[in-house]
Design a protein around this nucleic acid. Structure first.
Length: 290
DNA sequence: CCACAGGACGGCT
DNA sequence: AGCCGTCCTGTG
């Protein structure tokens, strides 16, 4: 494990804001430090990110080439200025939400980790989700020392498969224990082959495959599609917040709980098209923070 | 004590 | 096919 450091210059500093990226609900393994930087675990690496103006400083300990790792993970090959312009031109709501969450980027997170993380997210809140994942990593991941502190990698399917349902329950997963247990087994046994899934082109095929995993319903499937290396920006996860904001802005029914998912999905497709998932992130972050 | 939190699932109509 | 109670745990 070697210490590495890398500095990155971005053309437009408005397309990279640490708070926006890490607090918009897409990831669970990053923690803010006193100096405003963030430390997180990505694959078998601990990374510290700090931003000053249009330069971003990365420090890491771990296996991977730092530059290649962050280029992929932080989606540096995508032009967010262009995406923001496209979305801003849709209507006034989008212009405001994009201005508010100007530094959001959609991370390319490990597929396996994203699947398990979002199964845990069901009917749950972020602090607790983060706690559960931390305890799982500590129990079944590998330790990495960074700045004299211990961090733990996300367990592999094989190592997590060593956990019994009772073990998972003891880590605080609650009723999600059996779901994580079964899904882990299916992925470890390659009943669902994640490498093949990454190669599949058809959106509905990938989505329907994810839906066969225990604990993966429509919302969790769409989060996995959007926030992992599957990188499907057309996926539009509908949770209570998105339902709320979509009703408030576009549907305007007196009782938002009466709005059907299909109706929300239809409007999202019509207005945002292939960028629906990214639009959802700006709207979600805007209404939830404000 | 109760309500609720980035849902999924199973049983019922 | 839709509706609805239930599922663990922490917080207010």
């Amino acid at each position: 494990m070697k210490y590495k450091e890398q500095t990155w210059k971005i053309e437009n500093e408005n397309t990279f804001e640490l708070n926006n990226i890490f607090e918009c609900g897409q990831c669970f393994r990053w923690n803010k430090q006193i100096d405003g930087s963030y430390i997180g675990v990505v694959k078998n690496n601990v990374i510290k990110v700090k931003k000053e103006g249009n330069t971003i400083n990365f420090q890491s300990v771990g296996e991977d080439n730092l530059q290649e790792l962050v280029t992929d993970y932080f989606d540096f090959n995508t032009n967010y200025e262009k995406i923001k312009e496209t979305l801003s031109n849709i209507d006034e709501n989008m212009r405001k939400s994009v201005a508010y969450g100007k530094g959001i980027r959609i991370l390319n997170q490990d597929l396996w980790e994203t699947i398990i993380s979002f199964i845990i997210s069901a009917n749950n809140n972020i602090p607790r989700i983060k706690g559960i994942i931390e305890r799982m990593a500590k129990a079944y991941g590998k330790e990495i020392i960074f700045e004299n502190k211990s961090y733990y990698t996300f367990p592999t399917p094989s190592t997590l498969a060593q956990a019994s349902v009772a073990d998972l329950r003891n880590l605080g997963l609650g009723f999600r224990d059996i779901r994580v247990y079964e899904t882990t087994k299916m992925i470890k046994n390659k009943e669902i082959d994640l490498e093949k899934l990454e190669q599949e082109d058809n959106f509905e095929t990938v989505r329907n495959t994810l839906l066969t995993l225990p604990g993966v319903g429509p919302k969790v499937a769409d989060c996995i599609l959007l926030f992992s290396t599957l990188k499907r920006w057309e996926a539009f996860p509908i949770d209570v917040w998105v339902r709320r904001v979509m009703n408030e802005l576009y549907i305007k029914k007196p009782d938002e709980t009466k709005v059907k998912k299909e109706e929300i999905q239809k409007i999202a497709n019509e207005k945002f098209g292939s960028l629906a998932g990214i639009a959802q992130q700006y709207l979600f972050y805007w209404k939830r923070e404000a």
